[in-house]
Design a protein around this nucleic acid. Sequence first.
DNA 1: CTGAAAGCGCTTACAG
DNA 2: CTGAAAGCGCTTACAG
Lengths: 348, 348
Amino acid sequence: MADVAERAGVSPSTVSRTLRGLSTVSPQTRARVEKAARELSFAISRSASSLVTGRTGRVAVLVPNLDSWFLGAALAGLAPALNAAGLDMLVYSVTTAEQRAEFFDRLPARRNADALLVVSFALSPRERARLDDLGMPLVFVSQHEQGRAGVYVDDVEAARRGTRYLLNLGHRRIAYLEPADPSGFAWSSRARLDGYREALAEAGVDRDDELVRRVADWQGPSLDAAVGRLLSLAEPPTAVFAETDDIAFRLLTVLRGVNVPVPARMSVLGFDGHAMAEPWDLSTLAQPARRLGEAAAELARQVIQDSATHGERHVVLPVELVPRGSTGPAPGARDDGEKGEEDARNRG
Amino acid sequence: MADVAERAGVSPSTVSRTLRGLSTVSPQTRARVEKAARELSFAISRSASSLVTGRTGRVAVLVPNLDSWFLGAALAGLAPALNAAGLDMLVYSVTTAEQRAEFFDRLPARRNADALLVVSFALSPRERARLDDLGMPLVFVSQHEQGRAGVYVDDVEAARRGTRYLLNLGHRRIAYLEPADPSGFAWSSRARLDGYREALAEAGVDRDDELVRRVADWQGPSLDAAVGRLLSLAEPPTAVFAETDDIAFRLLTVLRGVNVPVPARMSVLGFDGHAMAEPWDLSTLAQPARRLGEAAAELARQVIQDSATHGERHVVLPVELVPRGSTGPAPGARDDGEKGEEDARNRG
DNA sequence: CTGAAAGCGCTTACAG
DNA sequence: CTGAAAGCGCTTACAG
């Protein structure tokens, strides 16, 4: 910066003011400084400036993994939005206990990032306390907590709508497949399961916990086992609600392999709005992952600007049911609408 | 740091030495300092230390998007490996011309990151020049360039092997589907197409550019059009080699929709080793995306350590053909091996 | 093995 | 509108 000052024939103070866009610089001076900076390909040292301002211009993002569709989409929304706000994005993917200890031990200091975005990550009480200790402004993404800034969807309501949709198709035996999270790192609210149960209760369908099965998160045989259990019940389900599209995809594969036609014999409904849901013709509850990321960036900006009032900023984004070919009427269901049509046809 | 020094009854110099793990600190002093630091939840300010050392402890990663399977997997390998080396990961997703100008204008200064990883991103000559000007150490990931550190796979060889596999199944009319990159941001070497052509030439199959079609990168109707073209040729293909698994997935969907059985009437081979390839039963050339990321982290470390000798570090990782159900013998092909078996069976 | 002092490259009152 | 000076929180020779 001293070089730029010399070349432009001004003081470092003036260079600093010019480069930060302060208005208290005369146009001629500004022009000279900008020219000098360009000629020297000068780029400011964030380290030095953050040392004095106390702001780093950086936001840390904590995620439980990086190779899931949801996180990719959320980051794809988050990154440009942060950059547009002049913030850099530091990504920490914490998947092992060791990394976890490291992260909370070393990284979160207020001085190394202006805010921490916690994305679908289940903080322990101790971790929470440590972050608060450090005065780290927090934004929760795809999860929420009282008195904390957060952006998420209404899982209960969405799951309720999804379940109602299946009920409306005449299904009464509706199974629910939830992912087991072996690491326990991912945040889970059980909200989707709650929504599922509420919708069944509303419709007067008896709760049957045999229909709720937990399956290993990614690949592995436990899905086959779950399907086996469901198909061998005295009264097997005619529809399955999968807590994530990833599970739904695997389920579709298993069903195809064991010659259970979808949706003729089994309807399948997913949750996420995964990019592959359309090619798979999977009915799903689409959540706006990208927009969650964008909203998170906006919250981050606000929380950094005044960390006082950030407590109660909650942004809830909508989930849309996208009906596709993987769901259909329950086999043998007495669907009055369809019946009516048939009658009409027969009369015609 | 001054607080810690006071609490431990030592000088800041000693605190600094302790925290950096220098051996020139007596065990008792070290213990006292560490205790004090813990009690104050002290975390060092990277800004201050990088101001004096000239190192930021950060690596910038430039990607053309964030929501593709490949980048997710690569980042999933990269992030923990960088963290393990004590480096933070700054992610820049540059997808529009505006972001692109911003990035090269503002961010890459040597002082704000110790190295830049360029992942599948096509730099313009001017951008290259600017980065060199700034003395930014570069590592190319999933792309390569003479005299530059890089980690990638041998696309030519892999595509050659994939094509040979189809040839060995008796296919002679093999189409090739390549993605169109509307933004032009993604790096492309044409290497896979070259490998495909080489294998055909080796086998004495005439080159037919009617069989090579470019399709829009993501969704959209252009794939249907391409399939229409192929199926309406005088001599339609019996196999399709898709440059990416994403294209292959969409192709499988289209083929199913138009009642072309796979692989009976059409074999489909992908490229990537996408996580969904197994559930889709898609034959593919699997590249080790995660390991590419890990290797990139290692290269970054080396390049930072001595930027002098980083020129010629090239790491080439292997691609494996994973045959699955989407590929089979060409219809009507005279496969001597199978013929032999049939004869044997008939004799038995 | 430990400390005092200088300095990294900025920003920010304070003068003018 | 501009400059001189102090200081942000570290690290690093230099002494001892």
